[in-house]
């Protein structure tokens, strides 16, 4: 194993609101190697976006990275690095794309100017060179007529095209790490397929590491090599995509997978339901955070918090995995859709 390009260890991003503290991210560790894609999945409020913002150094007061948090990028510690230094890395070596391509672009500048701006911020080039680069990038992300489109404004483009522009601008400096936060959530399925294929193709071509953050398990299944499942500010399970989806070890992962209708399923079989609600980040239980909603929970789960136990290629934060593989009652069944003649 080569050492990972990005190594996050015991990341704790807390928000201090008045006398209270929301522990949005509360002890998260993961690594991504060059050329690999890590999918970070979880439902709203689990802390996945805050994790991304923390890596980018974009956490502002009242948020704070707590003592002991470590974000190591290419051997350099980003936590505590002066803002001026972070700026040379952010946008240049680490690119980021957001969910909302409309609000992430400035409506009063042409898309070309915005890509050029990102480029000129980090490279000592003339306006003309930056414009050429912008056209080149637009071509790279598959926009037809880039020489003309470079002078378009965001509102003249469709959602899919705007997301391509965002990607072009994030990749203008050829980052080594791309953080994509729900890059396809606002898009239609056929456009989503285009954008996912594009990110994956560029990853291969530029040998980038990709941190893909999404709530869509399908998207992760499509492109990620490894997956980390987040729940209540923590990673509850990690592993390779195939192993984790085929044989989920944490009851939360299992429930998530069983709750999505798949193509070919009929309503005769009710979908899995996770009862209860996520606990509040202001008061995580001092035990397993999923215990109250877990159908397998026993007394220890309500008393002690489990660490991540190694189970085959996976790691799962569940007491049932302490002694190795847990026999999950739910198995991904073969889809009922058959091959047509």
């Amino acid at each position: 194993m080569t050492s990972p390009l990005l190594r996050v260890a015991n990341l704790r991003t807390w928000f201090h609101v008045g006398a209270r503290t929301a522990k949005a991210v509360d002890g998260v560790s993961f690594g991504i190697a060059e050329g690999r894609t890590l999918g970070l999945i979880g439902e709203s409020g689990c802390g996945k976006s805050v994790t991304a913002l923390s890596v980018m150094g974009l956490i502002d007061s009242p948020g704070r990275l707590e003592e002991g948090s470590s974000i190591e990028y290419a051997g350099r510690q980003l936590v505590g690095m002066p803002e001026r230094e972070i700026r040379t890395i952010r946008g240049s070596e680490i690119g980021m794309i957001f969910q909302e391509p409309m609000s992430s672009l400035n409506p009063v500048y042409t898309v070309g100017a915005q890509i050029a701006e990102a480029f000129r911020a980090h490279r000592d080039v003339s306006r003309g060179e930056a414009r050429t680069r912008a056209i080149e990038m637009l071509r790279l992300v598959g926009i037809a007529n880039p020489e003309k489109r470079v002078d378009s404004f965001p509102h003249e483009m469709s959602g899919g095209m705007r997301q391509r522009v965002m990607i072009a601008s994030a990749l203008a400096c050829e980052p080594k790490l791309l953080i994509a936060d729900e890059p396809t959530t606002a898009l239609d399925v056929t456009i989503q397929a285009q954008i996912i294929a594009l990110i994956d193709e560029l990853r291969e071509r530029l040998n980038m590491a990709v941190l893909l953050i999404t709530h869509d398990l399908g998207v992760v299944g499509q492109v990620a090599d490894e997956v980390a499942v987040m729940y209540a500010g923590r990673i509850v399970e990690t592993g390779s995509v195939d192993d984790l989806f085929e044989n989920p070890q944490h009851p939360y992962t299992e429930a998530l997978l069983a709750s999505i209708p798949r193509i070919g399923m009929s309503r005769d079989r009710p979908l899995k339901v996770v009862g209860g609600t996520v606990p509040s980040p202001f008061a995580w239980p001092p035990a397993c955070r999923f215990a109250d909603r877990c159908e397998y929970a026993f007394d220890r789960c309500h008393r002690e918090e489990p660490g991540l136990f190694q189970v085959g290629t996976q790691r799962s934060a569940c007491w049932l995995c302490e002694g190795g593989t847990r026999e999950a009652s739910h198995r991904m069944v073969e889809p009922t859709v058959r091959t047509s003649p």
């Binding site: 998207v219 992760v220 989806f245 997978l257 859709v337």
Partner: peptide, 19 residues
């Protein structure tokens, strides 16, 4: 184009061109 979580349902999507 519907991304599938489980490996058995995964396949290469037909990527439609354009909008």
């Amino acid at each position: 184009a519907v991304p599938q979580a489980h490996a058995s349902g995964r396949r290469k999507p037909i990527v439609l061109q354009g909008d």
